[in-house]
Design a protein around this nucleic acid. Sequence first.
DNA 1: ATGTCTCCCCTTGCTCCGAC
DNA 2: GTCGGAGCAAGGGGAGACAT
Length: 371
Amino acid sequence: MPYQSIDELQKLLGSEVFSHTKDAKKAAGRALGTLVEIITYYLLNEWNFTHNVAIERGLAEYGNAEITHNVEFTMHPVLWRKTIDIPYTGSLSVGKILAAAGEIEGNLSPKSINLIDSRNIVKNACIIAENDAELLLAYLNSLQNNSANVTLIKQSKKPYAMFECKRVGVEEGARKGPQTIEKAKQGAYVAKTTSALQKIRNENGDIQGIIYENGVPVIKPYFALLDEIINQRPQIPDNFILSVGIVSNHGNWFTQENQNKELKVLAQSYDWLLFLTDQGLAQFITELLRTPQAPYAAVKTAFVNSYKENKKENIFTKVKIDLEAHEALKNYFHANINQIIGWFNVISPADQTVCNLQNTLQTLIQKTDRL
DNA sequence: ATGTCTCCCCTTGCTCCGAC
DNA sequence: GTCGGAGCAAGGGGAGACAT
């Protein structure tokens, strides 16, 4: 497909979709950040990991729970699972779901929201109830013949992995993006303060990992210790958090060989840093938002309706999305998954692939689910 | 004079939650 | 159910300090 620079596409979206805003490029950039989040969520969905995912939860700092940080996605142990069919009469409230589900242990306090509302807006990773230690989530599998197929999941509130998505554009008139903006430091701070496995440097400048076990500090080369924890031990340590950063174009960080300061800050802070290429984001925008083929037209409709002048609400986000667009996105990711994996470069760890990350997450799921 | 680095802050937008 | 405010974080822009 013809490749356009993402900066050109951002300006194009600015004139096509955001012309009514005070600052069209800024608004388009803001929307591109949402797209990176959506791409990440539907990639996790295609990998069948979404039953472990919660969205925008406060992640506590390790050993300092009074400070929390909202991160895009966290992955949690699944403690219980049940799939049910519920008669569908135009919307699906928590009350209807819980009534259909029967008795659920745990003294959970229900929320008052809809998994699907009357205008067919569905919520991803929809939290329908919670208690001190657990979340109860509902996932819509399918909706047909006036019947909704829904999976109920009980997750532990304690995550073992987190994902952060970030995008920085190029200032109009500038040739390069800014360096060492606070956003990188903000991401780095969260990545470095939330896990029981902490990073330190030794006198030679090598990154070491330190983790306290029964009050005793264990220090080893970081990536060896990380591999030991994930692949060799039978259990994942309490409060261990694998951090994954997914960043989009910055204007001047092109490849693994050409890192600027900001990318280095991020690369040494996250356990995994993935770079969503301009080509990948451009393909997503072209094939789904600007000139989609018929099966994916609902994605464009949801996007345009979400950003048109005087619109009431956004129905194209990682949490709240038009049902038809949701189904179309699932189908697009399923049909194109091999190509989509190619949208990402692995910046760190060195010599790793996206499939290795998928395998790592799968291993964590197998070791932490309690089914 | 020009460009780079950094900090500060703006507008926009999302989610949650309580009042009505 | 809806509305609006609080809290937070996104992308972006302005401007001062400094280097070249």
